[in-house]
């Protein structure tokens, strides 16, 4: 059963959710990326080096070979669902936080700029859900969804202000989701084949113009 999105802010539960992605793709095992990296809980890997910017319980290990195609497909799909839930958790946290913050006699949720970001994030989350439901997923599509979620996360985390930069909070959650996508979903070698093909999918969030 999927846990509520806000529990992802707990590093141990995030690691457990990541382990569940591995379990679904490779029961009892681990899925290595095409670059042969595995990211999972220390409990599941049995060792490894701490993930940069991550909690101590999450580690990176390099395997000799990448995961199989089917395993990687399943894992990538689960990972995107996890990323989407992470962005949702950041959005929900912002709504709760800004509803309590009063400035000039009104909550910050009344500010139009804030409402715009909330609506844009919700639209991006809804679109990501629709894209994830489409049949015939490809690596290129998954990378585009990842980038869309990355952009949505970067926009909504700003509603948390400096609190979004604290390690114990939504900032680290988003960082881990981005790191996982960079490791498992990046189409390589420089990511430019995606978007160049259809000319539309490369968003402005990474200066593509």
């Amino acid at each position: 059963m999927t846990r509520p999105a806000d529990t992802l802010l707990d590093p141990a539960l995030f690691a457990a959710e990541l382990d569940a992605c591995h379990e679904q793709a490779a029961p009892g095992g681990l899925v290595a990326s095409r670059s042969r990296w595995v990211l999972a809980s220390r409990q599941r890997t049995g060792g490894g080096r701490p993930v940069p910017g991550g909690p101590s319980g999450l580690v990176a290990v390099q395997h000799d070979t990448p995961g199989g195609e089917r395993e990687l497909d399943v894992f990538a799909g689960r990972l995107l669902h996890l990323h989407r839930r992470a962005v949702r958790a950041v959005l929900d946290g912002a709504l709760a936080r800004l509803d309590q913050r009063v400035s000039e006699g009104a909550t910050l949720l009344n500010r139009q700029l804030v409402r715009g970001v909330v609506a844009d994030t919700a639209l991006a989350l809804a679109e990501a859900a629709d894209l994830l439901d489409l049949p015939g997923a490809t690596a290129q599509r998954r990378w585009r969804i990842h980038r869309d979620l990355r952009a949505a996360g970067r926009a909504v985390i700003k509603l948390h202000g400096a609190a979004g930069f604290q390690a114990a909070g939504p900032g680290r959650l988003l960082h881990l989701a981005e790191l996982l996508g960079n490791t498992y979903l990046h189409p390589g070698p420089d990511g430019s084949s995606v978007g160049a093909a259809d000319g539309s999918s490369v968003g402005s969030e990474a200066l593509d113009g």
Partner: peptide, 27 residues
């Protein structure tokens, strides 16, 4: 922010794990 996102894209898969300078600048 955009420059570090671009760098992570252009430096290839797992660059955030393998390139300590990129990892730091990105954060």
């Amino acid at each position: 922010e955009q420059s570090t996102l671009l760098a992570a894209d252009l430096l290839g898969p797992a660059a955030l794990l393998e390139d300590p300078l990129l990892d730091k600048l990105y954060r």
